[in-house]
Design a protein around this nucleic acid. Structure first.
Length: 418
RNA sequence: GUGGGCUUAGCUCAGUUGGUUAGAGCGCCAGACUGUGGAUCUGGAGGUCGCGGGUUCGAGUCCCGCCGUCCACCCCA
């Protein structure tokens, strides 16, 4: 259909872009404030990057990638997330030779071929940050702090920060063994889906929403039970930093993140009341990722925030602010278009936003239109006033109006608004 | 990929047991003694009833398929 957008995509139209721009402005200044610099990577990458970076057994790679062949027969994929590409760019641009750590942020569209629903789209937008080159727990905490600071600046309330540690690969393997053994003996108490998970992905049984599985998994080992000493210390340290920064969090031993590259710290921000897809942001540490992409062993930590979901919370909580209004509408009464045109030019030069009628409306209709577009002032350029060297300035909020000399118009509007 | 709901004007929705030219509210455009918005009143424009089949003398209405959309599952932002 010529008149319908591809499934799961969205037009962001006037009336909405204002909010996006505001969020983008917050992101830019916030990231700079924390010492992050922007990176812009391609919208598509070699498919291989995501296969290895994100993990072949993840759902993202398994069934959600927009993969296509270019004319040279190369397999390319629209990026389903940001971290793998940033890791690639880190290596390709030899950033390991830069002063470490390297702190970067990105902002842009991601693509996943999912079935759309509330809070889930095939093209959606993420704001994310990455720190490469340090495994210091303070960097985990900083990333979490930055994440929460973003929501705070946006004005969101009632968010839950869940944190956990999924350990290093060694801890994870121990956990896997323990879980398989545990759920093997509780197999009959699981839902049909989780029964299949026992061998395939026992970790996910932990956060199954089914009550039966919750009960069955009540005494199951969690990642926290299997941490090695190093991972245990790291997690404790991250928590201390969070405490020092007075960030409220919930330790959720059942928090398991879906992407293969996560190690140690994992966190997720939950917003109740926006439907089933309530995770508005999440992240964690990925010490193995750069190595997986063919580089040296370089630790990393970061997060990604879903902008559509964030906006959904903004709307739910009634936080949308009024947009910038047009300062002046220049209305014409009689044969005054030449003068009006010059006035518009002068106003715009002076930084006063203004507009005019283009379809030959009557003065009344021009007033009506000015009112509808919520202009602050109407400048009435009429023959009578012009004879006196004046125009009429009408305040559309108060309804008061008076004549102003032509060359004092800009100053008059500016003095009233500043 | 799986399941369920929904599809009539720009938007929200009516539309009788199937029966002539498919309606309302809001919005849009205009008018109410010709230079003044919001209120009120009046008028106007705007619909292949999502698409394709089928049943019927006759389908917006009943049946089937498809598309789209919404919600949920899986999973994730």
């Amino acid at each position: 259909m010529l008149t319908s957008k591809p499934r799961g995509t969205n037009d962001i139209i006037p009336g909405e872009t204002e909010l996006w721009q505001k969020i983008e402005a917050i992101i830019t200044s916030l990231a700079r404030n924390y010492g992050y610099r922007e990176i812009r990577t391609p919208i598509f990458e070699h498919t291989e990057l995501f296969l290895r970076g994100v993990g072949e057994n993840t759902d993202i790679v398994d069934k959600e990638m927009y993969t296509f062949e270019d004319k040279g027969g190369r397999s390319l994929t629209l990026r389903p997330e940001g971290t793998a590409a940033v890791a690639r760019a880190y290596l390709e641009n030899k950033m390991y030779a830069w002063p470490q750590p390297v702190k970067m942020y990105y902002l842009g569209p991601m693509f996943r071929h999912d079935r759309p629903q509330a809070g889930r789209y095939r093209q959606f937008h993420q704001f994310g940050v990455e720190i490469f080159g340090t495994s210091h727990p303070a960097s985990d905490a900083e990333v979490i702090h930055l994440c929460m600071a973003f929501y705070q600046l946006i004005g969101l309330e009632n968010l839950e920060l869940h944190i956990n540690s999924v350990g290093c690969p060694q801890c994870r393997e121990i956990l896997r063994q323990k879980l398989m053994a545990y759920f093997e003996s509780h197999r009959n108490d699981l839902c049909s889906i989780c029964r299949q998970r026992v061998e395939r992905n026992p970790l996910r049984i932990l956060d199954c929403k089914n009550k039966i599985c919750r009960d069955a998994g009540k005494d199951a080992p969690t990642p926290l039970d299997c941490l090695c000493q190093e991972c245990r210390d790291h997690f404790a340290s991250v928590r201390r930093y969070l405490d020092v920064q007075q960030i409220a969090y919930i330790v959720n031993p059942r928090l398991v993140r879906g992407l293969d590259y996560y190690t140690k710290t994992a966190f997720e921000v939950i917003a109740p009341d926006i439907g089933a897809q309530s995770a508005i942001g999440g992240g964690g540490r990925y010490d193995g990722l750069v190595e997986t992409c063919g580089g040296p062993h370089i630790p990393g930590v970061g997060f990604a925030i879903g902008l559509e979901r964030t906006i959904s919370v903004i709307r739910k909580q009634g936080l949308e602010q009024e947009t910038h209004r047009l300062m002046a509408f220049v209305a014409m009464a009689g044969d005054t278009e030449d003068v009006a045109t010059r006035i518009i030019y002068t106003l715009r030069q002076a930084g006063v936003s203004c507009d005019r009628d283009y379809i030959g409306r009557s003065l009344k209709a021009q007033m009506k239109y000015a009112s509808k577009i919520n202009a602050k002032y109407v400048v009435i350029v009429g023959e009578d006033e012009l004879a006196r060297g004046n125009v009429t300035l009408r305040d559309m909020d108060t309804g008061k109006q008076y004549e102003v000399e032509l060359d004092k118009l800009v100053a008059e509007i500016k003095s009233n608004t500043c």
